[in-house]
Nucleic acid binder design. Structure first.
Lengths: 218, 218
DNA sequence: TGTACATCAGTGAACGCGCGTTCACTGATGTAC
DNA sequence: TGTACATCAGTGAACGCGCGTTCACTGATGTAC
């Protein structure tokens, strides 16, 4: 009888389970959240459905998270860590040249948003506060610091009186990148614009850098 | 008896009502939606609460809207009309100079987002599709066309071989403006950055326009 | 000006639903001896 | 290696809630004559 009941539900899970306990439920819930958010937007995510998708009861998530918000924050946290890693890897300490590395960071930004929309949405569109939540503040600042460092290197050889603060420049680039993602990268709302998101970000960054005096006329 | 019952609920309304019927329920629901969205984000808005705030039963909105989404779309539609009007007024046909008018449009963009956050959220963050909805497509395109026209005028005297498409330029500016709004204008998520949203947009636009060759070095 | 009547814009009760969360529980796991 | 027991990570039933939507209804309004 035991077997009949307890194994019955378990065998319906797609992944082979190592034991009676899920073993990896925390991450499975994060993954489920990602796929739900990707499909149905931040408001389409519910704890109950994430649990369902992970193959556990609605009460199970409470063994790993305080509640709905806590899970969402964990997703954003993981997202920022991956984001920071990707940006840093793209920058590669400014090699081979600071300029080419800077462009690579821009492309990595867009690539992240396109490849991991669930993370991106949880990070920037789910309503979680990056500042009021200490765990998120740290990881988000670290990701953004890659941009600021790159901006600093980029302007190192500019005359001091023509050199705006690196933080300001990185915020400009961040704003442009985020704007391109939101408006042109995911179907909405600009629809299928005459230019791809990649082209827009690349050309926009190019014009901006020319304005900074970092590259000459084309 | 009639009076006692029918007038009882009615007198609780703050605004004096001209008649038994609300008379202005459609707009009252739009206004309620705006305040709900402003306070609690796009997912914080419910038809039931909008009705409550307007002082009518939960069934009443169905006399004016097909449902929740229909109301949200109407809010966005009104927002785009106002947005377009404000941008056009700010541009003022490029007077006194095309350049100063262009800056004014940028400031108007930001001012709109700050002054009417409910509209801005309904337009850009509520998940309504600007393209798949014909009524929204028209009004949003009209608002954006102000930017494109301004970009066109701005580049009119640029040598043809150094002149990127006006639509591309307006998309760059739109992306930067939207990014600044989302990241720095409403508390979230960049928190209180070292620079104000206004300064960021103004300086970012300035550097970009210099890159276009429209203004000289400072 | 008055009356009859169609239409309009509300009501309030009801529905089914899914959510977040809690609770006492139980089977599986890990550990001390 | 075996046993006793604490702890862990699940279950499933239950709760209260508010939502979106529908329905038959009714009081107010506007109009034709």
């Amino acid at each position: 009888m035991r077997f009949a009941i307890t194994d019955g539900g378990r065998n319906q899970l797609s992944k082979a389970r190592k034991s009676y306990h899920h073993g990896n439920l925390k991450q499975a819930l994060v993954d489920a959240t990602l796929s739900l958010i990707t499909e149905k937007g931040p408001q389409g995510f519910t704890l109950a459905e994430a649990a369902r998708q992970a193959g556990v009861s609605a009460a199970a998530p409470y063994r790993h998270f305080k509640g709905r918000d806590d899970l969402l924050i964990e997703v954003a946290r993981q997202g920022f860590i991956l984001f920071g890693d990707l940006l840093e890897h793209a920058y590669n300490n400014g090699k081979p040249t600071v300029l080419s590395a800077f462009y690579k960071v821009g492309r990595a930004y867009l690539a992240f948003a396109k490849r991991y929309p669930g993370y991106y949405i949880a990070m920037f569109e789910s309503g979680v506060s990056l500042t009021s939540n200490p765990q998120l503040a740290t990881v988000s600042e670290r990701a953004m610091s890659v941009l600021t460092l790159a901006a600093q290197h980029l302007m190192a050889h500019l005359p001091a009186d023509q050199r705006p603060p690196a933080v300001m420049v990185s915020h400009h680039i961040w704003a442009m990148s985020h704007g391109v993602v939101e408006l042109f990268a995911r179907g909405a709302p600009g629809g299928r614009a005459p230019f791809s998101a990649e082209d827009l970000l690349e050309s926009g960054t190019g014009i901006y850098l020319r304005g900074l005096g970092i590259i000459e006329k084309p």
